[in-house]
């Protein structure tokens, strides 16, 4: 089992595939997540990207910061495009038109491109069992278009389309649980990750790359611009998300849930919420409500993972 060695994963591949010249905001943890992930995916990778931050920061014609074959077609279809690439490469190898080798297809979407507009295409591609990895880089809102709420925006958060006001607490719905939706397709591998924990991320990418069939990685990608935090604090907030139980790191390997970074006792969520401009309007009532929910979900996850 690969999972046994997960904690001791210390390999750090040197080669870079997401290189200089991109136009991401200062302190963007999303492009960092991809930079780390593609170190492990390596050279023999074809990338299909949904419209979004990572697309517009990386490829203004005629420039690119990708050293990999890369395609962008539209917003809601990265998984469908990846399906076509996987099928195309496979049949061309079968027919002997291109040399047989292990080429991996990766599709990438933001939280909007994954949990909202791209959910159908993703579900279809997972169900059809294409051998590919889907990465959701989740910065918890439509940051590319100017911080509008998505179904992955957390409860209470302020965005430009979920503004707090006399009759609004901010985002009024709970974050959609995308990893569990992916896991419900009974695919071989699902995991959450965060670039604040690079070795955990490396190990999960490696597993996602190795399984036969589809795999799904949900990467929390702290967005200083949208979260209203200093650009130097992205790593810190990624860690706080994990330490407070807001975003637990776990994996689902062939249906088996496993917490990959156990937190013995969760920090209070106020440590995570404070300092984030998007939460600064929260009342104590709302904060307690969020704390209750986080506790409930954390206990549920521990139960699923058999952790006491």
């Amino acid at each position: 089992m690969i999972s046994k060695t997960l904690e001791r994963y210390t390999e750090h591949p040197e080669e870079e595939f997401v290189v200089y010249g991109h136009r991401a905001c200062q302190g963007c943890a999303e492009v960092l997540a991809l930079r780390l992930a593609f170190k492990v995916f390596g050279k023999d990778t074809i990338l299909a990207m949904a419209t979004g931050c990572m697309e517009i920061i990386s490829t203004p014609l005629p420039f690119t910061c990708w050293k990999l074959p890369w395609i962008h077609v539209a917003f809601e279809n990265a998984a469908a495009v990846a399906s076509g690439i996987e099928a195309g490469v496979k049949i061309l190898m079968e027919k002997g038109k291109i040399e047989k080798k292990d080429i991996h297809v990766v599709a990438i979407g933001g939280d909007g491109g994954t949990s909202d507009i791209g959910l159908q295409a993703l579900s279809g591609a997972l169900e059809r069992w294409h051998k590919f990895t889907y990465i959701c880089v989740d910065n918890e809102a439509y940051m590319n278009t100017g911080i509008q709420r998505s179904s992955c925006t957390p409860y209470g958060a302020m965005t430009t389309t979920s503004p707090p006001g006399k009759k609004s607490i901010g985002q009024s719905t709970w974050k959609k649980d995308m990893p569990k939706i992916a896991a419900a397709h009974n695919i071989p591998y699902v995991a959450t990750a965060c670039p604040s924990y690079p070795y955990d991320l490396f190990a999960k990418v490696k597993k996602a790359r190795m399984v036969e069939g589809p795999s799904y990685l949900h990467i929390l990608s702290v967005c200083p611009t949208g979260w209203r935090i200093p650009s130097g604090d992205a790593i810190k907030y990624g860690r706080l998300a994990v330490e407070t139980g807001v975003f637990p790191l776990y994996e689902v390997e062939n249906g088996q849930y496993r917490i990959t970074h156990n937190v013995k006792s969760l920090k209070p969520i106020t440590e995570y919420l404070k300092g984030q401009g998007r939460f600064r309007h929260l009342t104590n009532d709302t904060i307690s409500k969020i704390q209750e929910r986080v506790n409930l979900e954390w206990e549920g996850l521990k139960f699923q993972c058999g952790v006491k």
């Binding site: 495009v81 099928a87 195309g88 291109i98």
Partner: peptide
């Protein structure tokens, strides 16, 4: 979309 991906693969 899948046709685009497949065509892009050749």
């Amino acid at each position: 979309s899948a046709c685009c991906g497949a065509a892009a693969a050749g």
